[in-house]
């Protein structure tokens, strides 16, 4: 199996602002969100980061998408280091999250063209991609409607289409089904499986067991910023359900903390 993404000892320590310090109550000034995290993703698989809220999933995915810098450690994405060539990394990946919003004022059509240009996609490829993605997500009939007037689900689907305009080989998706209605959620998960079948590598984060069971080839369980278990889904669920395995390691990890 060919490794396409390799996170090596990623660490992220946030220095908390005054406001955040108050929220934390304990008065600590620094917060270790990701703690020497390492994992690999293989070409053509769905890798799922599973963990509770605050485990450090979003932070990890933002680091490998070069949106934020790790305090230490590195990640090699298709042979390129996030620390050394962040722009090159951004060309290779598509980063998706419900937090990435599209400007209300524009239409899906305009935005698709705009982001294609920023990614350096040729006009010809762009039209082909657009046709395919808009069809997959049923954006066709809304292509000329301003984002402001789209339903939440349609907005999210547009956001996905636009973020994949450059046909990246690696897709990083933070909480893919968060905030989606069941129908849109199904469209999205089916689409992820379809992308995997096309040979793309997909890295998702989630706190939902059923999603992992449905789409993941391998799973990494992350708790308090640490990778506590990382294996193929088949191995993980050999004897127990995913949920049971998760709570076993959770109790072990959090219990040993206290």
């Amino acid at each position: 199996m060919e490794t396409i993404l390799e996170a090596k000892d990623l660490k992220k320590i946030y220095s908390l602002s005054k406001k955040q310090q108050k929220l934390e109550k304990s008065g600590i000034k620094k917060k270790t969100a990701v703690d020497d995290l390492s994992f690999e993703a293989y070409k053509g698989e769905v890798f799922a980061l599973l963990g509770p809220n605050g485990a450090g999933k979003t932070t990890t995915l933002r680091i490998i998408s070069t949106l934020i810098k790790p305090t230490s450690g590195d990640c090699i994405v298709d042979g390129v280091s996030i620390a050394e060539q962040p722009e090159e990394v951004r060309k290779k990946i598509g980063f998706l999250t419900s937090e990435l919003k599209l400007e209300d004022y524009f239409t899906p059509n305009y935005l698709f063209d705009f982001f294609s240009k920023l990614h350096g996609v040729s006009d010809e490829d762009r039209e082909k991609r657009k046709e395919k993605l808009f069809k997959t997500f049923g954006i066709d009939e809304f292509a000329e409607v301003k984002v402001a007037n789209l339903s939440t689900g349609m907005k999210q689907k547009t956001s996905i289409a636009v973020s994949l305009a450059h046909d990246p080989d690696i897709i990083i998706f933070d909480e893919p089904t968060n905030g989606l209605d069941v129908i849109t959620a199904k469209v999205v998960t089916d689409f992820l499986i379809q992308l995997r079948d096309e040979g793309k590598t997909i890295i998702v984060s989630t706190h939902i067991f059923s999603l992992v069971e449905k789409i993941a080839d391998r799973v990494g369980i992350i708790i308090n910023g640490k990778m506590v278990l990382c294996d193929s889904l088949k191995e993980v669920v050999k004897e127990k359900t995913l949920e049971d395995v998760f709570f076993d390691v959770y109790v072990k990890e959090v219990g040993s903390d206290e």
């Binding site: 722009e87 951004r90 919003k101």
Partner: peptide, 17 residues
Amino acid sequence: GEKERGTIATLLVTPVK
């Protein structure tokens, strides 16, 4: 405004310098 609406992050994940 772009920060507030969360649209700037969408730009920041593109390869644009």
